[in-house]
Write a protein that binds this DNA or RNA. Structure first.
Length: 156
DNA sequence: GCCAACGTTGGC
DNA sequence: GCCAACGTTGGC
């Protein structure tokens, strides 16, 4: 059974359009440097899982579309590169600290589902996204939440 | 640009 | 092992 996730990206850095325009509409999701998010990627994210693509730190903020996992966790090589902003000297090639997955573009929503719309929908009140101080950049969501947001993207 | 919330670091 | 200081995230 597939799982459902939400990942955050700053569209100034990498937007859903960037993903749609990438080779094969696919990219590696590098640079995650949070243990909880790392554990989700390394231990739970499987090929075929669906992901809501959330634009953070932007105007407007919200869920911009859908992608899916096409490659399961493998070492995040950006941690090994001294010149990379995500370099982490503690992560060793023979014992990596950080992992990444590959995601492939599936769909850009016609209407972005904004953060305030999510907050105003009682069906979505349990989402980690809107819980106080939540800074997780990779988080699990339920199938019902996934489908509700997909529905909101069409209903506007 | 501000700042609250949170995770990490490092001195002790 | 505690906890203050610091850096980062990310909404406003």
């Amino acid at each position: 059974m597939i799982k459902y996730w939400l990942i955050k990206s700053e569209p100034d850095v990498f937007s859903i359009d960037d993903l749609a325009n990438a080779d094969n509409k696919t990219t590696y999701w590098d640079g995650v440097r949070n243990y909880q998010a790392r554990n989700f990627m390394r231990d739970e994210m499987k090929i075929g899982d669906k992901i809501l693509y959330y634009h953070s730190n932007s105007d407007p903020m919200g869920v911009a579309g859908i992608c899916e996992i096409v490659k399961e966790a493998y070492p995040d090589f950006s941690a090994f590169d001294k010149k990379d902003p995500h370099f982490d000297p503690k992560s060793k090639k023979d014992d990596p600290t950080w992992f990444m997955i590959d995601v492939k573009f599936l769909e850009k929503f016609k209407y972005l589902v904004t953060l305030s719309e999510i907050k105003n929908n009682p069906k979505l009140s349990e989402m980690k996204l809107i819980q106080r101080g939540s800074r997780l950049s990779v988080m699990p969501i339920t199938k019902a939440e996934f489908e509700e947001i997909a529905k909101m993207a069409k209903a506007k």
